[in-house]
């Protein structure tokens, strides 16, 4: 009896989570400008329209650039921070981690406005670079969280063994640390990329004249006739995002069952 109630609850919850999202792909294939039931027929013309949309492709290019740079820089910072926190007995490490994670809890709109003010005060121009800086504030904590989990199962003796066998710090990093951390590094790259790629508010404040994809989509919403095209774009982004998140999760768990320690 109780199990049944729980099952129905879970089903309801999943429906609440995912049914709205399903409208995106459904209407993106609907042969009508108007988003309304009943569906009028199947078409791929909204998708075809994307191929000819130069402004959209430019925005997509910007988003990819920002996403890649953010992912690389955040993961590098995350890697060094996670290593420091887990492997050296740092004083105040817990407090420091708290501070690093703080941007996660500050509303993006506040974060965006403060960065905008800061750049204005410093007389720095708004550009994709300023978007990267804003995104890193949000992404570095993600990266650290993913990588700390990975480092916690890491036997420090392995790095010492490498030094003992004649390798310096850098060679030890390349020959031992990086290969063993690779699943965590890839997971961090994917998660930070997705986070940056999907981010709207901070980018909206900091991008200046260059639009990222979410900003472009926001702009398109003013034109009702563009709505189905936006839905098609949204459906593509959704599919790719879900695939990347699943890949990141699989990487994160990869090799966790096999203990990474030397024992």
């Amino acid at each position: 009896m109780k199990n049944r109630a729980l099952f129905i609850y879970a089903l309801g919850y999943l429906a609440f989570l995912y049914v709205p999202v399903l409208f995106l792909p459904i209407f993106s294939f609907n042969n009508s400008q108007f988003i309304a039931f009943p569906l009028t027929g199947f078409t791929t013309r909204w998708y075809a329209g994307l191929g000819a949309d130069a402004a959209m492709q430019h925005a997509l290019g910007n988003s990819l650039k920002v996403g890649l740079v953010t992912a690389l820089l955040s993961t590098m910072l995350g890697l060094t921070a996670a290593k420091a926190v887990t492997q050296y007995r740092l004083r105040g490490a817990a407090a420091m981690l708290g501070f690093i994670s703080l941007p996660l809890f500050i509303p993006d709109i506040v974060l965006g406005i403060s960065l905008l003010l800061l750049l204005g005060l410093l007389n720095l121009p708004l550009s994709l670079a300023s978007v990267v800086v804003g995104h890193m504030l949000v992404c570095v904590p993600f990266s650290i969280t993913v990588l700390i989990a990975r480092f916690e199962g890491f036997d420090r003796n392995l790095e010492e063994a490498s030094a003992d066998l004649g390798e310096s710090g850098w060679m030890t990093f390349w020959r031992v640390t990086a290969p063993l951390m690779m699943p965590g590094i890839l997971a961090s790259l994917l998660l930070t990329f997705i986070t940056s790629f999907d981010e709207f508010l901070v980018a909206y404040f900091l991008s200046g004249t260059e639009a990222t994809l979410p900003i472009y989509i926001w702009g398109q919403l003013r034109f009702p006739e563009r709505l189905p095209t936006v839905l098609a774009l949204g459906a593509i982004i959704l599919t790719v995002s879900v695939a990347l998140v699943i890949a990141a999760e699989m990487l994160r768990n990869l090799g966790v069952k096999k203990p990474m320690v030397g024992a």
């Binding site: 036997d155 003796n157 392995l158 010492e160 063994a161 031992v176």
Partner: peptide, 9 residues
Amino acid sequence: FQSYAIFPH
């Protein structure tokens, strides 16, 4: 090493 520290990869 006490834990042997064999490189797992």
